[in-house]
Nucleic acid binder design. Structure first.
Lengths: 141, 141
DNA sequence: TTCCTTATTGAGATTGAGTCTCAAAGAAAT
DNA sequence: ATTTCTTTGAGACTCAATCTCAATAAGGAA
């Protein structure tokens, strides 16, 4: 049994949505790798494995997964958004190489705490954040 | 004499670009307000003032300004990018209300320092960063 | 000033990511 | 098995942004 499949079923049920071949395939494809891939890459990978699915369905399913915290959407500044699953992972942010596109993950508790503090100071209720460091990786400098 | 106009002229000259009515108008429009506006809002404002300009030129000019550090591009997660001038301002990041779109600016030295540290640890050379807190403002909670 | 070279402009076409439409196919409840 | 209601998919569409290319304008030379 694939990781998180039950959780997916519960979520779909909870939202009054149906568990379908396509939705299962999208989820399986996303957890099959820890890479940061865009919707089209995920779409192509599913088709290559012989499952019939459309781009529209891939986008629609990813939306559900993102809303339900099983997948994270990553805006990398240029080109399509990328996605990563959130199974067995901790929260992290990203360092992105503006030359080769390489993506590294980082996490600093202190920064997270300071964020919370700032948000409170401004009277906001924090829902999510984007913290991305763009630069040149070792190889590209 | 409008703020930064000389700097704009120098930049254009340095890049082998010409100082034109349109480029001047775009710059004047952008520094005329501290708001965060998108390209179309800037375009409309210029036209309203009677200067003839096209959307293409507005986009092209903003690109030059962003590349030369006179204007900052702000990806607010949904819809068109927004822009703000960088004259007489200090570096800051943004808290954005996901309900009403209100944007507040914040700056925490400690976070900036931690960012530098993280980047170094990963062997990257930091070029720029995005740090955006999305949430609900006081009014929208 | 006028000439001349080269950059710029603008209207509209194009791109690209993502969303929408709607008829046909498929879940799930009874 | 029947009914009901959701989902799917091909392709149309949206929207921000970029590109095209003929007409226009900048600005250096003389």
């Amino acid at each position: 049994m694939s990781k998180g499949l039950n959780r997916l079923k519960k979520i779909l049920h909870h939202e009054g949505l149906r568990f379908t071949t396509q939705r299962e395939a999208v989820w399986r494809e996303i957890i099959s790798s820890d890479d940061h891939r865009d919707a089209d890459e995920i779409y192509m990978a599913i088709r290559k494995k012989g499952v019939s699915v459309s781009r529209a369905t891939v986008y629609r399913t990813i939306d559900v997964l993102v809303k339900n915290n099983m997948v994270r959407k990553l805006d990398v500044g240029t080109g399509p958004s990328k996605f990563e699953h959130k199974i067995d992972t901790y929260h992290h942010d990203h360092i992105i190489c503006i030359q080769c596109g390489r993506i590294e993950e980082f996490m600093v508790d202190q920064i997270e705490d300071l964020q919370d503090k700032v948000t409170q100071e401004y009277g906001f209720k924090l829902v999510r954040h984007i913290h991305q460091l763009f630069g040149l990786c070792k190889n590209c400098q």
